[in-house]
Write a protein that binds this DNA or RNA. Structure first.
Ligand code: MN
Ligand code: MN
Ligand code: ZN
Ligand code: ZN
Lengths: 157, 157
DNA sequence: GGGATTATTGAAAATCATTTTCGCTATTCA
DNA sequence: TGAATAGCGAAAATGATTTTCAATAATCCC
Protein backbone atom coordinates (compact mmCIF):
# COMPACT_ATOMS: atom_id res chain seq x y z
CA UNK A 1 0.00 0.00 0.00
CA UNK A 2 1.32 3.41 -1.03
CA UNK A 3 1.57 6.26 1.42
CA UNK A 4 -0.15 9.51 0.51
CA UNK A 5 2.47 12.21 1.03
CA UNK A 6 -0.30 14.68 1.90
CA UNK A 7 -1.17 12.74 5.05
CA UNK A 8 0.96 12.37 8.16
CA UNK A 9 3.17 9.35 7.81
CA UNK A 10 1.84 7.30 10.69
CA UNK A 11 3.49 4.08 9.63
CA UNK A 12 6.80 5.86 9.70
CA UNK A 13 6.04 7.24 13.15
CA UNK A 14 5.49 3.67 14.25
CA UNK A 15 8.81 2.68 12.74
CA UNK A 16 10.44 5.53 14.57
CA UNK A 17 9.08 4.37 17.91
CA UNK A 18 10.20 0.82 17.17
CA UNK A 19 13.67 2.03 16.30
CA UNK A 20 14.02 4.08 19.44
CA UNK A 21 12.75 1.27 21.64
CA UNK A 22 14.84 -1.49 20.06
CA UNK A 23 17.98 0.62 20.22
CA UNK A 24 17.81 0.36 24.01
CA UNK A 25 16.65 -3.24 24.17
CA UNK A 26 12.96 -2.49 24.65
CA UNK A 27 10.31 -4.11 22.48
CA UNK A 28 7.82 -2.35 20.29
CA UNK A 29 4.22 -3.05 21.32
CA UNK A 30 0.87 -1.79 20.14
CA UNK A 31 0.14 -0.51 23.63
CA UNK A 32 3.19 1.74 23.62
CA UNK A 33 2.34 3.04 20.18
CA UNK A 34 -1.23 3.84 21.19
CA UNK A 35 -0.09 5.73 24.24
CA UNK A 36 2.41 7.76 22.26
CA UNK A 37 -0.30 8.43 19.67
CA UNK A 38 -2.43 10.04 22.38
CA UNK A 39 0.32 12.51 23.15
CA UNK A 40 0.83 13.30 19.49
CA UNK A 41 -2.89 13.88 19.08
CA UNK A 42 -3.33 15.90 22.27
CA UNK A 43 -3.98 19.60 22.11
CA UNK A 44 -0.96 21.80 22.68
CA UNK A 45 -0.74 22.62 26.33
CA UNK A 46 -2.71 19.58 27.39
CA UNK A 47 -0.96 17.33 29.90
CA UNK A 48 -1.93 13.72 30.35
CA UNK A 49 -2.06 11.65 33.53
CA UNK A 50 -2.12 7.84 33.68
CA UNK A 51 -5.79 8.06 34.59
CA UNK A 52 -6.60 10.21 31.56
CA UNK A 53 -4.62 7.98 29.22
CA UNK A 54 -6.57 4.99 30.49
CA UNK A 55 -9.87 6.78 29.99
CA UNK A 56 -9.03 8.04 26.50
CA UNK A 57 -8.04 4.57 25.38
CA UNK A 58 -11.21 3.11 26.87
CA UNK A 59 -13.22 5.76 25.03
CA UNK A 60 -11.70 4.67 21.75
CA UNK A 61 -12.43 1.03 22.51
CA UNK A 62 -8.95 -0.01 23.61
CA UNK A 63 -8.63 -2.03 26.77
CA UNK A 64 -5.33 -1.54 28.58
CA UNK A 65 -4.18 -2.07 32.13
CA UNK A 66 -2.79 0.60 34.39
CA UNK A 67 0.38 -1.39 34.92
CA UNK A 68 1.04 -1.27 31.20
CA UNK A 69 0.39 2.47 31.11
CA UNK A 70 2.74 3.18 33.97
CA UNK A 71 5.42 0.94 32.51
CA UNK A 72 5.12 2.58 29.10
CA UNK A 73 5.34 6.06 30.60
CA UNK A 74 8.51 5.16 32.46
CA UNK A 75 10.11 3.68 29.38
CA UNK A 76 9.25 6.70 27.26
CA UNK A 77 10.56 9.10 29.86
CA UNK A 78 13.80 7.13 29.99
CA UNK A 79 14.03 7.37 26.20
CA UNK A 80 13.36 11.11 26.35
CA UNK A 81 10.19 10.77 24.31
CA UNK A 82 8.14 12.14 27.19
CA UNK A 83 8.72 14.49 30.06
CA UNK A 84 7.26 13.99 33.51
CA UNK A 85 5.73 17.04 35.18
CA UNK A 86 5.01 17.74 38.85
CA UNK A 87 2.25 20.20 38.18
CA UNK A 88 -0.02 19.81 41.13
CA UNK A 89 -1.53 17.60 43.69
CA UNK A 90 -1.29 13.87 43.93
CA UNK A 91 -0.65 12.69 40.42
CA UNK A 92 2.00 13.07 37.76
CA UNK A 93 1.45 14.48 34.30
CA UNK A 94 3.29 13.81 31.07
CA UNK A 95 3.82 15.63 27.79
CA UNK A 96 5.93 15.17 24.67
CA UNK A 97 9.52 16.04 25.38
CA UNK A 98 11.07 19.00 23.57
CA UNK A 99 14.68 20.01 22.97
CA UNK A 100 16.17 21.65 26.04
CA UNK A 101 16.33 25.18 24.65
CA UNK A 102 12.68 25.02 23.58
CA UNK A 103 11.31 23.96 26.92
CA UNK A 104 8.32 25.83 28.21
CA UNK A 105 7.09 26.37 31.73
CA UNK A 106 3.82 26.36 33.62
CA UNK A 107 1.47 28.67 35.46
CA UNK A 108 -0.92 26.65 37.64
CA UNK A 109 -4.12 27.73 39.35
CA UNK A 110 -4.02 26.13 42.79
CA UNK A 111 -7.79 26.42 43.04
CA UNK A 112 -9.10 24.83 39.83
CA UNK A 113 -5.93 23.24 38.47
CA UNK A 114 -5.95 25.20 35.19
CA UNK A 115 -2.54 25.25 33.52
CA UNK A 116 -1.08 27.89 31.19
CA UNK A 117 2.19 27.44 29.37
CA UNK A 118 4.78 30.10 28.63
CA UNK A 119 8.22 30.21 27.13
CA UNK A 120 11.15 32.13 28.52
CA UNK A 121 14.72 31.51 27.53
CA UNK A 122 15.94 32.87 30.86
CA UNK A 123 15.05 29.64 32.59
CA UNK A 124 17.30 27.48 30.45
CA UNK A 125 20.11 29.99 30.89
CA UNK A 126 19.82 30.12 34.66
CA UNK A 127 19.45 26.35 34.84
CA UNK A 128 22.52 25.80 32.71
CA UNK A 129 24.71 28.24 34.57
CA UNK A 130 23.63 27.11 38.03
CA UNK A 131 24.19 23.45 37.26
CA UNK A 132 27.52 24.19 35.61
CA UNK A 133 28.59 26.25 38.62
CA UNK A 134 28.06 23.27 40.91
CA UNK A 135 29.31 20.54 38.62
CA UNK A 136 25.89 19.01 38.01
CA UNK A 137 25.18 17.52 34.62
CA UNK A 138 21.88 19.12 33.66
CA UNK A 139 18.89 16.96 32.75
CA UNK A 140 16.01 19.41 32.74
CA UNK A 141 14.41 22.39 34.44
CA UNK A 142 10.91 22.98 35.64
CA UNK A 143 9.70 26.45 36.48
CA UNK A 144 6.24 26.31 37.98
CA UNK A 145 4.35 29.42 38.99
CA UNK A 146 1.43 28.91 41.37
CA UNK A 147 -1.40 31.39 41.65
CA UNK A 148 -5.14 31.93 41.32
CA UNK A 149 -6.52 32.19 37.81
CA UNK A 150 -8.84 35.01 36.78
CA UNK A 151 -11.97 32.82 36.89
CA UNK A 152 -11.23 31.61 40.40
CA UNK A 153 -10.34 34.97 41.92
CA UNK A 154 -13.95 36.19 42.32
CA UNK A 155 -14.85 32.91 44.07
CA UNK A 156 -12.33 33.52 46.85
CA UNK A 157 -11.36 36.38 49.22
CA UNK B 1 10.66 34.56 85.72
CA UNK B 2 12.85 37.10 83.95
CA UNK B 3 14.11 36.59 80.44
CA UNK B 4 17.86 36.75 79.89
CA UNK B 5 18.34 39.13 76.96
CA UNK B 6 21.50 37.27 75.96
CA UNK B 7 19.53 34.13 75.07
CA UNK B 8 17.11 33.67 72.18
CA UNK B 9 13.64 34.56 73.27
CA UNK B 10 11.95 31.19 72.82
CA UNK B 11 8.92 32.09 74.87
CA UNK B 12 8.30 34.98 72.54
CA UNK B 13 8.60 32.71 69.52
CA UNK B 14 5.92 30.56 71.11
CA UNK B 15 3.76 33.61 71.61
CA UNK B 16 4.24 34.53 67.99
CA UNK B 17 3.04 31.14 66.80
CA UNK B 18 0.06 31.35 69.14
CA UNK B 19 -0.83 34.77 67.82
CA UNK B 20 -0.65 33.70 64.20
CA UNK B 21 -2.71 30.57 64.85
CA UNK B 22 -5.38 32.24 66.94
CA UNK B 23 -5.80 35.07 64.45
CA UNK B 24 -7.21 32.52 62.01
CA UNK B 25 -9.18 30.52 64.53
CA UNK B 26 -6.61 27.75 65.01
CA UNK B 27 -5.45 26.71 68.45
CA UNK B 28 -1.92 26.77 69.73
CA UNK B 29 -0.66 23.29 70.66
CA UNK B 30 2.65 21.97 71.89
CA UNK B 31 2.80 19.65 68.90
CA UNK B 32 2.61 22.54 66.45
CA UNK B 33 5.26 24.43 68.36
CA UNK B 34 7.60 21.43 68.40
CA UNK B 35 7.23 20.95 64.67
CA UNK B 36 7.91 24.59 63.94
CA UNK B 37 10.91 24.43 66.27
CA UNK B 38 12.41 21.68 64.12
CA UNK B 39 12.30 23.95 61.09
CA UNK B 40 13.83 26.84 63.00
CA UNK B 41 16.61 24.54 64.24
CA UNK B 42 17.22 22.85 60.88
CA UNK B 43 20.38 23.60 58.94
CA UNK B 44 19.98 26.10 56.12
CA UNK B 45 19.17 24.23 52.96
CA UNK B 46 17.76 21.24 54.79
CA UNK B 47 14.22 20.28 53.83
CA UNK B 48 12.00 18.20 56.09
CA UNK B 49 9.47 15.52 55.17
CA UNK B 50 6.70 14.25 57.42
CA UNK B 51 8.72 11.10 57.94
CA UNK B 52 11.81 13.01 59.02
CA UNK B 53 9.81 15.24 61.36
CA UNK B 54 8.37 12.14 62.96
CA UNK B 55 11.80 10.60 63.37
CA UNK B 56 13.42 13.73 64.76
CA UNK B 57 10.70 14.12 67.35
CA UNK B 58 11.01 10.46 68.31
CA UNK B 59 14.76 10.94 68.66
CA UNK B 60 14.20 13.76 71.11
CA UNK B 61 11.75 11.66 73.09
CA UNK B 62 8.52 13.20 71.75
CA UNK B 63 5.77 10.88 70.69
CA UNK B 64 3.53 12.29 67.95
CA UNK B 65 1.26 10.75 65.36
CA UNK B 66 1.58 11.16 61.64
CA UNK B 67 -1.92 12.54 61.41
CA UNK B 68 -0.93 15.36 63.72
CA UNK B 69 2.20 16.06 61.70
CA UNK B 70 0.33 16.23 58.41
CA UNK B 71 -2.38 18.42 59.91
CA UNK B 72 0.18 20.79 61.40
CA UNK B 73 2.04 21.05 58.11
CA UNK B 74 -1.14 21.94 56.26
CA UNK B 75 -2.09 24.57 58.79
CA UNK B 76 1.34 26.17 58.72
CA UNK B 77 1.41 26.22 54.94
CA UNK B 78 -1.99 27.91 54.95
CA UNK B 79 -0.65 30.49 57.39
CA UNK B 80 2.43 31.04 55.20
CA UNK B 81 4.76 29.89 57.94
CA UNK B 82 5.97 27.03 55.78
CA UNK B 83 6.36 26.37 52.10
CA UNK B 84 5.66 23.01 50.49
CA UNK B 85 8.21 21.77 47.96
CA UNK B 86 7.88 19.18 45.19
CA UNK B 87 11.54 18.34 45.12
CA UNK B 88 11.57 14.75 44.08
CA UNK B 89 9.92 11.40 44.13
CA UNK B 90 7.04 10.32 46.24
CA UNK B 91 7.02 12.59 49.20
CA UNK B 92 6.65 16.28 49.91
CA UNK B 93 9.19 18.45 51.65
CA UNK B 94 8.73 21.60 53.69
CA UNK B 95 10.87 24.55 54.69
CA UNK B 96 10.37 27.88 56.44
CA UNK B 97 8.63 30.32 54.15
CA UNK B 98 10.50 33.43 53.05
CA UNK B 99 9.30 36.73 51.57
CA UNK B 100 8.55 36.40 47.88
CA UNK B 101 11.48 38.42 46.62
CA UNK B 102 13.92 36.40 48.74
CA UNK B 103 12.80 33.02 47.54
CA UNK B 104 15.50 30.60 46.51
CA UNK B 105 15.39 27.68 44.12
CA UNK B 106 16.66 24.12 43.96
CA UNK B 107 19.09 21.95 42.05
CA UNK B 108 18.27 18.28 42.62
CA UNK B 109 20.35 15.19 41.87
CA UNK B 110 17.94 12.65 40.44
CA UNK B 111 20.30 9.84 41.40
CA UNK B 112 21.04 10.42 45.10
CA UNK B 113 18.48 13.12 45.92
CA UNK B 114 21.05 15.72 47.00
CA UNK B 115 19.66 19.25 46.93
CA UNK B 116 21.52 22.53 46.42
CA UNK B 117 19.89 25.90 46.83
CA UNK B 118 20.54 29.02 44.81
CA UNK B 119 19.11 32.49 44.57
CA UNK B 120 18.28 34.31 41.38
CA UNK B 121 16.06 37.34 41.22
CA UNK B 122 15.17 36.56 37.61
CA UNK B 123 12.72 33.88 38.70
CA UNK B 124 10.61 36.22 40.77
CA UNK B 125 10.60 38.72 37.92
CA UNK B 126 9.54 36.21 35.30
CA UNK B 127 6.97 34.71 37.64
CA UNK B 128 5.49 38.11 38.39
CA UNK B 129 5.33 39.26 34.82
CA UNK B 130 3.93 35.98 33.48
CA UNK B 131 1.22 35.80 36.11
CA UNK B 132 0.37 39.47 35.64
CA UNK B 133 0.16 38.97 31.86
CA UNK B 134 -2.49 36.29 32.31
CA UNK B 135 -4.39 37.84 35.18
CA UNK B 136 -3.27 35.28 37.75
CA UNK B 137 -2.74 36.43 41.31
CA UNK B 138 0.70 35.11 42.12
CA UNK B 139 1.22 32.87 45.15
CA UNK B 140 4.71 31.50 44.62
CA UNK B 141 7.21 30.15 42.13
CA UNK B 142 9.31 27.03 42.15
CA UNK B 143 12.23 26.65 39.85
CA UNK B 144 13.67 23.16 40.09
CA UNK B 145 16.68 22.05 38.09
CA UNK B 146 17.22 18.31 37.77
CA UNK B 147 20.59 16.80 37.03
CA UNK B 148 23.32 14.47 38.24
CA UNK B 149 25.55 15.73 41.02
CA UNK B 150 29.34 15.51 40.80
CA UNK B 151 29.57 12.52 43.17
CA UNK B 152 27.02 10.51 41.21
CA UNK B 153 28.42 11.19 37.74
CA UNK B 154 31.29 8.66 37.97
CA UNK B 155 28.84 5.96 39.10
CA UNK B 156 26.83 6.24 35.90
CA UNK B 157 27.53 6.36 32.16
C1' DG C 1 -10.39 29.81 88.62
C1' DG C 2 -14.09 26.79 86.64
C1' DG C 3 -17.04 25.06 83.11
C1' DA C 4 -18.96 24.94 78.39
C1' DT C 5 -17.63 24.74 73.71
C1' DT C 6 -15.22 22.76 70.18
C1' DA C 7 -10.60 22.38 67.77
C1' DT C 8 -7.01 18.99 68.14
C1' DT C 9 -5.00 14.66 69.16
C1' DG C 10 -3.72 9.60 68.49
C1' DA C 11 -4.78 5.07 66.77
C1' DA C 12 -6.63 2.60 63.41
C1' DA C 13 -8.87 2.18 59.15
C1' DA C 14 -9.40 4.10 54.61
C1' DT C 15 -7.69 6.27 50.24
C1' DC C 16 -5.48 6.50 46.15
C1' DA C 17 -1.76 6.72 42.90
C1' DT C 18 1.67 3.81 41.71
C1' DT C 19 4.37 -0.62 41.83
C1' DT C 20 5.02 -5.47 42.05
C1' DT C 21 3.95 -10.33 41.34
C1' DC C 22 2.98 -14.01 38.43
C1' DG C 23 1.31 -16.95 34.78
C1' DC C 24 0.57 -16.22 29.96
C1' DT C 25 1.43 -13.94 25.43
C1' DA C 26 3.87 -11.69 21.81
C1' DT C 27 8.21 -9.63 20.05
C1' DT C 28 12.89 -10.23 18.69
C1' DC C 29 16.43 -12.42 16.46
C1' DA C 30 19.20 -16.27 14.89
C1' DT D 1 10.27 -20.86 12.41
C1' DG D 2 11.49 -21.59 17.20
C1' DA D 3 13.92 -20.42 21.48
C1' DA D 4 14.59 -16.82 24.63
C1' DT D 5 12.60 -13.37 27.16
C1' DA D 6 10.41 -8.63 27.43
C1' DG D 7 5.90 -7.16 28.07
C1' DC D 8 0.96 -7.85 29.10
C1' DG D 9 -3.26 -8.03 32.32
C1' DA D 10 -5.29 -9.02 36.73
C1' DA D 11 -4.89 -8.92 41.25
C1' DA D 12 -2.38 -8.09 45.32
C1' DA D 13 0.92 -5.06 47.56
C1' DT D 14 2.93 -0.62 48.73
C1' DG D 15 3.50 3.70 50.77
C1' DA D 16 2.41 8.39 51.52
C1' DT D 17 -1.31 10.85 52.97
C1' DT D 18 -6.17 11.40 54.68
C1' DT D 19 -10.12 10.35 57.32
C1' DT D 20 -12.83 8.60 61.23
C1' DC D 21 -13.97 8.72 65.90
C1' DA D 22 -13.69 8.79 70.79
C1' DA D 23 -10.85 11.09 74.18
C1' DT D 24 -8.31 15.30 75.33
C1' DA D 25 -7.13 20.01 75.87
C1' DA D 26 -7.18 25.06 74.25
C1' DT D 27 -10.14 29.07 74.21
C1' DC D 28 -13.67 31.85 75.82
C1' DC D 29 -16.95 33.56 78.96
C1' DC D 30 -18.61 33.98 83.70
MN1 MN E 1 3.45 21.80 29.15
MN1 MN F 1 15.11 25.30 50.04
ZN1 ZN G 1 -8.64 28.60 38.70
ZN1 ZN H 1 23.87 12.57 43.35
Amino acid sequence: MEHDPALPDLSQEADQLKTVLNKEGFRFTSQRQKILDLFQAAALGHHLSAEEIHQQLLDQGEKISFSTIYRALHVMVRLSLLQELELAEGRKYYELNTPFMDQHHHLVCVHCGAVKEFEDATMAQVGSSESAARGFSLLNCQFTVYGICPSCQPLLG
